[in-house]
Design a protein around this nucleic acid. Structure first.
Lengths: 133, 133
DNA sequence: TTAATTGCAAACGGTTTGCCACGTT
DNA sequence: AACGTGGCAAACCGTTTGCAATTAA
């Protein structure tokens, strides 16, 4: 996990491919199921290992969401997220709004700010429709 | 955990008190240690149970941070956070910046936005000082 | 050949939960 | 008496890791 020179691997390549053609910010479990279709004797460890390598390479973003499990995003350009508090779904919120307060916050706290994450929480259209509760 | 009418409890009261007089956004483990000083035969379950009750009552905010464990905040007014990527420390970022993009994002995605969380990531002053790596 | 990759299964670690005794109302 | 609360320990569950076999370079 230190100075490795990563070799290419079918699994990792396929994993990234799936991630890039998926807009739903999948969980590791979902990716595992999806990838297992192509590699029947795939193990969870492989998925987790490769996700962390992809994240290390900056090819994937880890969204540690409000729920207990992580979600992953192959779109590493800065953008915000909408998190549904009912069903846990995560959508893109479009272009990231004002980094306005960033400099101010950095100055006030003395932090060296390298990135930021903005998540909106609410109810997704589907859950609004299927009303109740 | 549904329609309970909570009774007062020394443990819960003390927990909230500690939380309110602490600016460091403690972890459950830290709170457990702290509270154990006052209640020597305290168990972890009690801390977790009470934290979740306090959260349910809106008296505490759960900051599911970039790290693997949660942090808790008794300041439930809207404000953002600075997360140190080196040591995991979490500070307040001061007054929350304008929710400028919020309406736009809500309109674009169809979400009913109820709240948002803005976290800045970077290096805290201490870690900047103790340089290296 | 050499080091990265994988499957497997056990381990990890923070959090949750079932059980029963105790405390509050 | 009725029911929330707490201690204890086991269970949970997403994730990590050690190991031996496999595979890419």
């Amino acid at each position: 996990m230190s100075e490795s020179v990563y070799k290419t691997s079918k699994h990792r390549t396929a994993l990234l491919e799936i991630l890039r053609t998926t807009k739903t910010h999948p969980t590791a479990a979902w990716l595992y199921e999806r990838l297992k279709e192509r590699f029947p004797d795939l193990s969870q460890g492989t998925v987790y290992r490769n996700l962390s390598i992809l994240a290390e390479l900056g090819l994937v973003r880890v969204l540690r969401s409000g729920k207990t499990f992580d979600r992953f995003d192959a779109d590493v350009t800065p953008h915000d997220h909408m998190v549904c508090e009912r069903c846990g779904r995560v959508d893109d919120a479009g272009i990231s709004a004002t980094p306005a307060g960033e400099q101010e916050a950095a100055r006030a706290t003395g932090y060296l700010v390298t990135s930021r994450r903005l998540d909106y929480y609410g109810i997704c259209p589907d859950c609004q429709r299927s009303g109740d509760r």
